[in-house]
Design a protein around this nucleic acid. Structure first.
Lengths: 142, 142
DNA sequence: GTTCCTGCAAAAGCTTTGCAGAAGA
DNA sequence: TCTTCTGCAAAGCTTTTGCAGGAAC
């Protein structure tokens, strides 16, 4: 369940964060994307349409959204952060071969965990890594 | 179940990686530590005993161990990598208040997950974040 | 003696910060 | 008009790389 552009926009307005042209474009790209883009990818995708756009503004916008918990920052990649407009609980699988990140359903409440009785848990991240089916079939063909 | 210094040493020897004085000290520190240290922390802990030690050597050693899957690199912290000599499946909880990382038991096979039938999974990371009991009781006292 | 390692310095890469001019409300 | 934002340049950090001297075997 992706957050819509309208939802994000309204949340920002509520928090007195101005809806500039650049920010709307970043939000639009993020909410339409299923690929958990990086700042670099957002920048490359939008620079034709918004030539003046800077990475600073992208960071600025994403950091606001993350602070308001409207998006998630994924640390699944060693080099750079990926951003996800889907905040509902789900896991992420990163293919070590092609680098693509896939979503998968996971119900953390069904997991047997222990020793966390007196902890307050605000955030749960699940990262799996390996080889995706597409890369697997390519390997088998060779 | 921590890997022992002897186990790690033998594995390195098997892989033709020389057991220098510096590497043994890094291994020793890591296997005796339960706190998932960073490169900075290892460096600060060992520089009195091994004054010439450089961070380059610590990175070098840890990267070898990680490549051989003898230790795990934790991406639970946004700023820097933490290292864990325990490679058996378990989750990590990071306290947003004090920054400490706690281990907890988790049985991933008991989790309801879907959509990963044709994926090869080599690695599973589970990161929870929130407030630990120690910080909670401090907050309540104020 | 050969090979690999160490540690310094420099480079690389992602992210943040300072600030003057521009845009939003 | 007043406040906030943008985008450039520079700085900050962690991590990697190049390389000459040194240690391991």
């Amino acid at each position: 369940m992706n957050k819509t552009l309208l939802e994000l926009s309204n949340e920002l307005k509520k928090n007195n964060i101005r809806l500039t042209h650049q920010r709307l474009k970043v939000l639009e790209y993020l909410t339409n994307s299923i690929k958990h883009p990086t700042v670099e990818q957002i920048y490359n995708a939008l620079k034709k349409e918004v030539p003046s756009l800077s990475k600073t503004t992208i960071y600025n916008t994403l950091n606001y959204l993350a602070e308001l918990k409207l998006i998630k920052v994924l640390a699944i990649d060693d080099n750079e952060a990926h951003f996800d407009a889907v905040t509902a609980e789900h896991g992420h699988f990163k293919c070590d071969s092609c680098g693509q990140i896939y979503d998968f359903d996971i119900d953390m409440d069904s997991c047997k965990t222990e020793k966390l009785e007196n902890f307050i848990i605000n955030e749960k991240e699940v990262y799996f890594k390996g080889i995706c089916p597409g890369c697997l079939s390519n390997i088998n063909l060779n």
